[in-house]
């Protein structure tokens, strides 16, 4: 594989900001994920060699923390809170309705057209508004299955108009 140095430019910058410090690995990974929305394998290998540590250690840290993801995500990320409060207020109904609407089966989290990906998160801390979903960073409180289907429809409509 021919190395494309431009590809690692941003990663280099993040590594520099963190002074190539092994103990700042988590902060480096957070920076990279913010840039790419996920952690591509070749970049992880690049980070490992730059920090002079085995790739297995980097991989170990990545898979340990739920914030990190090795898979690309959809254009729109729908987070459904399944914390205690939301659960008590029937967040599972929301998950089912969203999955059905997006045609996602079983453990699938990304739609085929790469438009939507869904995540369940354990407590966003907005329990007073349970059940809560977050679409593209915007929090929607006291959500109902009907409302989330409408939300998705709106996004689809906007996407079509573009």
């Amino acid at each position: 594989m021919g190395l494309n140095y431009n590809k690692f430019e941003k990663t280099c910058k993040i590594l520099e900001e963190n002074e190539f410090d092994k103990s700042k690995l988590i902060s480096i990974l957070q920076g990279v994920q913010e840039e790419y929305k996920y952690l591509p394998e070749d970049i992880l290998a690049f980070i490992a060699s730059s920090l002079n540590m085995p790739l297995s250690k980097v991989y170990g840290v990545v898979t340990f923390f739920s914030f990190f993801t090795l898979q690309p995500k959809g254009k729109y990320i729908i987070k459904i809170c399944d914390g205690t409060a939301c659960h008590v207020k029937k967040s599972t109904g929301l998950i089912d309705a969203i999955k059905k609407k997006l045609g996602l089966k079983d453990d699938e989290i990304l739609t085929k057209n790469m438009l939507f990906s869904i995540e369940t998160v354990a407590c966003l801390g907005a329990c007073g508004l349970a059940p809560v979903i977050v679409v593209d960073g915007v929090v929607y409180g006291q959500a109902t299955p009907n409302a989330v289907v409408r939300l998705i429809d709106n996004v689809l409509k906007e996407e079509k108009e573009k």
Partner: peptide, 18 residues
């Protein structure tokens, strides 16, 4: 980075150490 167990003292320390 999203791990409940890091609320535990020794786990939290490990996580700060990267």
């Amino acid at each position: 980075a999203g791990a409940f167990v890091c609320g535990e003292e020794t786990a939290l320390i490990a996580s700060i150490e990267g």
